[in-house]
Design a protein around this nucleic acid. Structure first.
Lengths: 231, 231
DNA sequence: TATGATTAACATGTCAGACCTCTTACCACT
DNA sequence: AGTGGTAAGAGGTCTGACATGTTAATCATA
């Protein structure tokens, strides 16, 4: 049994605003009420509200300019990876298949960063893979392990942009991972993949690793497209 | 003749802090001074400082927890695309070749999003390319056009993640674009590319477009690796 | 001596209220 | 029609007080 702390006023304000943006109360390109009114409505003080607004603006949801009403940005066009997970989780958007889209991006990037990672640190990656403990069969454990693996791979890659980029997917990855790994077939396919990747890491076979990633990431996508309808 | 407005206190505080992080005054994993001290040192008030801190935290630079000193995060490992352009522009980091890294990522992503874009909107893309006016030969004009092209392509792509992802590169793209297009050879190669892409858009040849992007993006990377030493 | 409880110091989080600066619409004057 | 001034409404910042969370030190008890 665990308890969650009550939401702090700034957190509360931020999530209320975000919900209001996503549910269409404040649609794209609309103006928010004045900070004074909004703070009043939300039951927080203006400085507290402003902290929340600054955070939302930095993520790409809002455009704040002195002397003008704060505007809701077109978060599909002007958004960032920071807006992505909120969009993916929102019940107010006829959800595009975010799992498939994420897998598609991963298919494009993972072979290259894996190659670079093995080039730099194959024994460390092998050690990590050897330490894998997925006997519980819990989807959450698979999702966490998979994330950790890709995070490590991008961290070892020569191009630092891979990791910065992957970090932007952390929340979405966690959400989507639990869905994806809820299927037994997805879990067992992943276990095969980890074993094969371990072999590549131990033998330092870069070409084989790259191809393995390409096949496996494509396989994941195909598998999801087949199973996705049942989610 | 144009004037730039004076920096507002919150902006000033934010950029001073960011500089202090990047120049090692506040290194990774160090604690910042207390908000009260920091506000004093910076000559702004605490609420103002807090706004700046919230923004920096949301970008991935800081970890703020009530009751504990604010910590500088490992922005290489825990950072985001929002930290990327600051890192690329920082004189304090023995600069990895960010242009090459950016071009490498683009090589991986652009063929797919271009294909998807042409699938969805080839006449609009053709119209955009026809409207290209790069006669001035200015590097800035090339950089702006190239950005706009890729932004449009990602906007038309089926997978919305492409555009959200590209948005994270906007600042870096602008910085790097001016460097890349300062070379005449890069400019003329790009013009050729735009003409060929126009042909693909007009004939709706998806395979050819995808291959063109792959070759061109690889060509850009190779060209940069050759010329980059001279930058 | 070891452990648990309490307290104090220091940190961030929030509140209330006042004033400052920017934007925009409207009006008056040339 | 163009320009300048004013007022209203918006966001930006300041001052100062209080609330809540963390952690180390101290005290009490077994």
């Amino acid at each position: 049994m665990s308890f969650t702390p009550p939401q702090k006023p700034a957190e509360y304000a931020e999530s209320e605003l975000l919900n209001a943006i996503l549910d269409g109360t404040f649609p794209i390109n609309s103006s928010l009420p004045s900070e004074r009114d909004l703070a009043d409505q939300l039951g927080v003080t203006r400085p507290t509200l402003r902290e929340a607004l600054q955070r939302l603006a930095r993520d790409g949801w809002l455009d704040i300019q002195q002397g003008k009403s704060t505007r809701v940005r077109d978060y599909w066009q002007e958004g960032s990876l920071a807006t992505l997970s909120a969009l993916a989780a929102s019940p107010h958007h006829q959800s595009p298949d975010f799992v498939a889209y994420l897998l598609e991006i991963r298919l494009l990037l993972a072979p290259t960063y894996t190659r670079q990672a093995l080039e730099a640190a194959s024994s460390q990656i092998a050690a990590f893979l050897k330490g894998a403990d997925l006997r519980s069969g819990e989807p959450a454990a698979f999702a966490a392990f998979d994330w950790e693996l890709h995070h490590k791979l991008t961290g070892y890659a020569r191009n630092p942009i891979f990791q910065l980029l992957l970090n932007g997917f952390e929340e979405l990855y966690a959400q989507m991972g639990r869905t994806y790994f809820s299927f037994e077939e997805c879990r067992s396919e992943s276990q095969k993949f980890y074993r094969r990747l371990l072999e590549c890491a131990e033998s330092c076979d870069l070409d084989r690793a790259e191809n393995l990633l390409r096949q496996t990431m494509r396989g994941s996508l195909d598998l999801w497209l087949r199973l996705g309808g049942q989610a």
